[in-house]
């Protein structure tokens, strides 16, 4: 973390990082086992949202504000890929 922050904040951010990482790994179960394709897409979308949260927490832990921008870019990429997969399911192709 950056210079002299309280110990409880450091502990909370570290705990949040660990929990968000574990939760992201657990979401991989739905991606692998999901009975239908939309299940897998929902699982991947959840992983994307969790990685946004991890990037924000990492910006808090390291004190590097650049990782906030990383989380914004990850959110944009996740949204575009979700739309692309949904369009691929319904239409059969993405760009015609």
């Amino acid at each position: 973390m950056a210079s002299e922050v309280p110990a409880f904040l450091e502990t909370a951010v570290l705990g949040g990082l660990v929990l968000a990482s574990v939760v992201t790994l657990l979401a991989g179960y739905r991606v692998i086992r999901g009975p239908t394709v939309p299940d897998r897409v929902v699982g991947l979308e959840t992983i994307g949202t969790n990685v946004v949260a991890i990037a924000a927490l990492f910006a808090l832990q390291t004190g590097e504000g650049l990782f906030v921008t990383v989380s914004l870019v990850l959110a944009i990429i996740g949204f575009i890929s979700t739309i692309a997969v949904a369009r691929f399911i319904t239409e059969g192709d993405i760009i015609e």
Binding site: T36, P38, V41, V42, T82, V85, R87, I89, T90
Partner: peptide
């Protein structure tokens, strides 16, 4: 969008 795709599937 995903729920519409699932319903169409």
């Amino acid at each position: 969008v995903i729920s519409r795709a699932a319903q169409k599937m």
